[in-house]
Structures are given as structure tokens and as C-alpha cells.
Simulated assay, not measured.
Amino acid sequence: MALASLVVAAAGLGQVIGDIPAGTLTTRIGERRAMLLATGLVAVALAACLVVPNVWGLALAIGATGVAGAVWGLARQAYLSEAIPLQLRARALSTLGGVQRIGSFIGPFIGALAMRFLGTDGAYWVHLVAAVLACLALLSLPDLESVRRKRLGRPVELQSTRAVIRDHLPVLRTLGVGALLVGAVRASRQVVVPLWAEHLGLDAQTTSLIFGLSGAVDMLLFYPAGSVMDRFGRKWVAVPSMLVLAAAHLLLPLTHSAPALTAVALLMGLGNGLGAGIIMTLGADASPPVGRAQFLGAFRLFADTGNAGGPFLVAAVTALSGLGPAILFMGLTGCLAATAMQRWIPPRPEPEPAPG
């Protein structure tokens, strides 16, 4: 089990390692080409998953899918940030987060169906087919170089990634830290619900059903959340989302039955769904017109570190004090994340004037 967990964690590690290089790569070759390259890399990595003869080869291949995910995620965020008008940005990015949630919800069911006929390899084939279809869809997208040049009125000047990070360090060490806390709390919910269900003695089928219901609630709120962000500002979504997630964590150790656990899991889904697209939107708002992808790579590094570190934090506190205190600790982290969002999210940005 420990070795299997390490292999799964390789994807998150690959994503963290790939964030900064992804920004540099996207700046140099463009968002569309970067996404195409990422789909090619993930296809090769998934093919390797099917044929590698040992578990360490599998771990390397899974890590490569994480690197590809970093490039893909950053390039698509940078693409939408450029292509969508500012007054629609939050709705666009929250919709992006929402459809990703839908894919994450139905993917395991399609994978389970494929595994019924192909064994464990069926899950990798589902991912591989999805990557190929994504690649075909990307071929219809236009490049954004002409849009960027028209907005700036001149050819785009490349800056070094180090210079971009240095120039925007005040944002990264404040709002970026807030994104790290948000990522940690969000990721912990995927760990604490199954662990508490195990603590209560629930079987795997019941636990899966509870988690699925939570995911269903999570999927329903992405467009309303984006609309609120566009109309009233980002704080109106980010702070309530973290407070609801914090409250759900604090309530979880008080549950002692499947119905009570289901109610708290639904509350977690509500809180997570409220925040659909918030990190991508905040990153897009803070990113500069020149060096946008490089800035987003650094900003996503904070969020992805939180995503990867949240479960490890739960494990560490559990080892020291037990599962209940670990869940309460993540609830307090959610309160801290809400405070950071309230303190560091700037006022709603004004739309940029049209070129010319």
C-alpha cells in the first residue's frame, strides 16, 4: 500500500516540478503548441504505463503524466486569460474548472467499465483515448500571437522567468501563499472523507457512494460561482468557499454514522464547488500582459504545492496526534486560507481598453 501511494504521489510531484518550466515553454512556443506538446507527452507516458516491466518504471511514467499535466494546465489557463474579455474571465475560468470536475467525475466510471474487459490496463487506455481526442480538438484552436501583438501594439518581448518572478515577488509571497493554503485544504478533503469513513467502519462501496455524491454537488456550482466573481468581485466566492470547507472539516470528527458523514461530505462538495476556478482567476488577474505564462507557472507552483502537500500534512499530523486532530488542523487551515483571501485579494480589476 505504501509503495502504491508513492506511485500515485509521483503525478503530483511531476506537476510541481513541471510548473516553472511549463511557463517558460509556453512563453517560447505559444499556448496552443504547448498544449499539443503536453498531449503528446502524456500519450507517450501512458503507453509506457502499459508496457513497463517494473513498479519504478511505472512511477517514472506516472511522474511524466504530472509534468504533462503542468504544461497542459498552465497553457490552457494562459490561453483563456488572453482570449476571453476581462468582464467574462471568471465565468470562463470557473466553467473550465467545472468541466474538469465533470471529467474527473465520469472518468472513473468509464475507467471501471473499460477495466471490466481489459483489466487494469483499461484505465490507461481510457486516458490515452481521451488525450488523443483532446489533441484533435486543439488542432481547431487559433494561435494567439496576433491577438497579443494587436493588444500591445508591438511584437511581444520575451523576459527571463527569473526576471518575471522577481518583478512580481510581492504578489507571489502574499496571494501565492493564500493559493497554497487553498490548495492544501481542497486536497485534504479527498483524503479525510475516506479515512474517516474507514474509522467509522463503513465498507468501500458506501464510502465510494458518499464521495460520489459529494462530487456531484461539487459539479453544480461552477457557473454561478463565476458569475458572482464577475459581478461582485473574487472575494465574494473565495472567502465563503474556504469558510464552508473549514466548517465541514471541523464538523467531520463529530460524525458517527453514514448519514451524518454524507451530510458533511455534501457540505465539503458545496464549499469546493463554490470556489471553482478561483485560483485560475486570481492568477489570471495578477498576471502581466508580458510574461503572463511565466508568472502563471510560478503562481501555479504555490497552488500545486498545496495540492500535493495537503494529504502529506494530514498524514503527518495523524501520525503525531491521530486522525481527528489532523482533520481539525485542516479546518483551522481553511480558516487561515479564508483570512488570507480576504486580506490579499485585490479589488475587482477594471476591463482593459480595447486596442486602438
Rank of each mutant, 00 (worst) to 15 (best):
I62H: 14
P53M: 14
L80S: 00
V16H: 01
V132T: 13
D285V: 08
L141G: 04
P289T: 01
S287D: 12
T255V: 09
L251G: 01
F312N: 08
A263N: 05
L6C: 13
L245G: 00
L251N: 01
I84F: 02
V71N: 06
R149S: 05
G269N: 05
G98H: 04
P325D: 01
A22G: 06
S321P: 09
V129P: 00
A75T: 00
D203V: 11
V314Q: 01
G176Y: 06
A45S: 13
G309H: 08
G297Q: 07
A319G: 15
M229S: 08
L328G: 03
L46T: 04
A354S: 10
A298H: 02
V67W: 00
A90D: 02
M268D: 03
L282Y: 02
L144S: 07
A112D: 09
L152Y: 08
T206V: 15
A308W: 11
Q15Y: 10
L138E: 08
S188V: 15
L36G: 02
Q77I: 14
P259R: 05
L37E: 12
G331N: 04
T281Q: 05
Q205K: 14
R166E: 10
G69R: 02
L320K: 06
D19N: 10
P253M: 12
F117G: 03
G275Q: 02
A163F: 09
E157T: 03
V164M: 06
F295D: 02
G310T: 11
G309L: 15
L118G: 04
G201M: 05
A315Q: 02
A204T: 03
I29S: 10
E198L: 15
D143E: 13
G275M: 12
G277N: 13
F232G: 10
V314P: 00
G57D: 09
L336E: 03
I20V: 11
K235H: 08
G212N: 09
H256I: 13
G310S: 07
V67F: 01
P288W: 03
G153I: 15
P347R: 03
M242A: 07
G14Y: 06
L282R: 01
L80G: 00
L323E: 00
T174R: 09
L144A: 06
G57C: 04
D285M: 05
H199C: 11
L36C: 09
S208T: 15
M242W: 01
V8A: 15
A260S: 11
Q15W: 10
G334I: 14
D304C: 12
E145T: 14
A137Y: 03
A61N: 08
G119W: 10
R32I: 04
G215L: 11
L200R: 04
V164L: 04
V314D: 02
A75F: 11
A163Q: 10
A298S: 01
L282A: 11
P170S: 10
L80A: 07
T39S: 09
A112C: 07
A130K: 01
I110E: 07
L270E: 10
G107A: 12
G176P: 03
T95Q: 14
L243Y: 00
R89N: 09
L202I: 04
I110P: 05
M341S: 03
F329S: 04
C335W: 07
R28A: 11
